[in-house]
């Protein structure tokens, strides 16, 4: 299930079923080297997933820590009905959902950076991006995340997984621990709301999108 979910970070997360089972068993036995191995294999995948869902790197290291702590704690209950990468992705989604909820209640003091232009995937374009294109892309992404911010956390997650990650209802239902019918209803309203916001909101000016948080 959810084969599409385990894209990202190439070969570092690809484990055979037997190797995966062995790694899980060793982690369950609290073997520190196994926990290190799991962390090394999945850390980039986890960070990338969280980064894309959240749209900024404000508390990213805290979120990555939370995901792995939950994973190590929950491995004993992991039944193996999904691949390990999928299960970890599910934790990422739930951790991100929790953080979005918190952030809604307690907005941050300042806006933080949007997806960073310097990290853009060069494979997306044949030719290197011009500064203008880069600016345009950042502006568009900032506009998307601004519209996402205006949705309720549950709608936001569902819409993100469907429209941006391209997952189907069944996959989303597994990730958000819901049923496909509920997800379909939530998605129905989320799409209307999201695209309405995009349609009536002018794009973010370049100055707004130009914040950086990298030291």
């Amino acid at each position: 299930m959810l084969d599409r979910v385990k894209r990202e970070t190439g070969s570092s997360t690809t484990l055979g079923v037997a190797d995966e089972a062995d790694l899980i068993e060793r982690c369950r036995a609290h073997e520190r080297s196994a926990q290190d191995e799991l962390y090394h294999r999945f850390r980039r995948q986890v960070a990338a997933n969280l980064y894309r869902v959240m749209g900024d790197r404000g508390d990213l290291d805290d979120l990555v820590q939370e995901v792995f702590v939950i994973a190590f704690r929950g491995l004993e209950q992991f039944r193996g009905d999904a691949r390990l990468s999928t299960w970890i992705y599910r934790i990422c989604v739930n951790v991100a959902l929790g953080r979005i909820r918190t952030r809604k209640r307690r907005p941050t003091a300042i806006g933080v950076a949007d997806l960073d232009a310097a990290d853009a995937d060069p494979s997306l374009t044949d030719r290197p991006e011009t500064p203008h294109q880069s600016l345009e892309r950042r502006r568009d992404q900032a506009t998307v995340y601004r519209a996402l911010e205006l949705l309720s956390p549950k709608k936001r997650i569902v819409l993100y997984l469907h429209e941006i990650e391209g997952l189907d209802l069944k996959e989303i239902a597994y990730l958000v621990d819901s049923n496909p019918v509920t997800v379909r209803t939530r998605l129905f309203y989320a799409r209307r709301e999201f695209y309405k916001i995009l349609a009536i909101t002018p794009p973010i000016s370049t100055g707004d999108a130009d914040t950086e948080d990298d030291a």
Partner: peptide, 9 residues
């Protein structure tokens, strides 16, 4: 598409 393929920071 650009958001989807964004690498890990």
């Amino acid at each position: 598409a650009a958001i989807k393929s964004h690498p890990a920071p």
